[in-house]
Design a protein around this nucleic acid. Structure first.
Lengths: 226, 226
DNA sequence: CCGTAAATGTCGTCG
DNA sequence: CGACGACGTTTACGG
């Protein structure tokens, strides 16, 4: 890991072309050769960057007002050209590999909790399987309701239009299967946007807002019993 | 801008919870209070972060093996807690505001070029308007073909399934308008994924792969004439 | 390696 | 401020 603060000009030529006029910025060079150029604001996204795997070629320059020119290139031939006018700070250190991030609360957990607590979706439901496979991708939960009819459940953290489209595609396909049809759809999310709800209900898809904390609470309570 | 290299533990509690075990990492504190925690590899996305606007509270610690505890919080109450065990490097510098990035080659440009060179889509077409407004959003290009029939064009850099869905929604709506219908659809992109092509053609939508460089070349040549 | 779906997506624009 | 679509989306996961 090398950290530079430098007055620099940066050009990217690849999927698009982008140019950064000269200004002081932070340049981060990671162990895998990737390069990030950050300004002193904005979000976590760098102004410009090159993702690994890539190679860095660093060349001194004789030109007036230019200290070095870095050419960072990946396999696809995309290039990031960093022209360094003046180095203001330069520090390098080995960090080693990171143990990595542990996450909780993403869609996968919501799916697991709902699979264990189907009553949050409907009374008397039975789980056929999670990640029920279809030709165009897996259905989050495939169930049978109390009447034994098929229900395809699409789970999202935030329910938006594309989630409804996704479920619609599944339903269209599943309803061609004589062993399953008729299959109805349920769109379950912690939050459902109004547009998504309108579209879903227009297509006969039921919307259910689920409470992650409540599901987790029940789960924890059950865990403590055993 | 403050750059730290430190052995640290990081916890995020907000839209999800996430934990980083102790390890040496780079911590970037920007002028707007945002904090990024980077490892020495991966891509431009930090392991953990807090986006602006947010506030940082830095507290010394008496605990054994803990130097400082930072609590970064945003308006929504999401928290990033950085526990610093040992500072390995620390540097701070004012960078000022960045002049910002200049881009070229994105979808807007492709749309402009196609609007000027409709013959790349079909002979004898007339442009009705770019960004043709509908209740559910603007259609990239609304045209009339040589027979005077309506054509809705959806433009993408990379043509994938959701682009086809988007165009399908527009067509469904537009075909209810007696002044326009029948409206056919054209899906134009620099690259069209096989699945997207199958879905589009299944719905009677024509797929056209456009050559950005060629369009730009013609455009440049025309520009030089005037 | 391709394809799909998720993301603490982020970022711009427009109402 | 919310909604919506683009993004050099990036990233993870499965066949």
């Amino acid at each position: 890991m090398r950290l530079l603060i430098a007055r620099c000009t940066v050009d990217y030529v690849g999927r698009l072309t982008a140019h950064l006029p000269e200004a002081p910025r932070v340049i981060m060079v990671k162990a895998d050769g990737s390069v990030l150029v950050h300004s002193d604001g904005g979000s976590y996204k760098p102004l410009n960057w090159m993702s690994p795997p890539c190679t860095v070629r660093m060349a001194e320059s004789e030109d007036d007002g230019i200290d070095q020119v870095w050419t960072v290139e990946n396999k696809a031939g995309e290039q990031l050209i960093v022209t360094i006018h003046e180095i203001l700070h330069d520090h390098e250190r080995e960090l080693g590999t990171d143990p990595g991030l542990v996450k909780d609360g993403v869609e996968a957990h919501l799916q697991k909790l709902l699979a264990e607590q189907l009553d949050a979706l409907g009374d008397g439901w039975r789980l056929i399987r999670r990640e029920f496979p279809t030709a165009i991708g897996p259905v989050d939960l495939m169930c049978r309701d109390a009447q034994g009819l098929s229900v395809a459940v699409e789970i999202k953290r935030r329910g938006e239009i594309d989630g409804v489209e996704q479920l619609t595609r599944y339903l269209e396909l599943l309803n061609r299967d004589p062993l399953l049809q008729p299959v109805r759809g349920v769109f379950a999310a912690q939050e459902i946007k109004p547009q998504a709800r309108v579209l879903a209900e227009d297509r006969g898809i039921e919307c259910i807002v689920v409470d992650y904390d409540a599901l987790r609470g029940v789960d924890d309570a059950e865990s403590r019993l055993f």
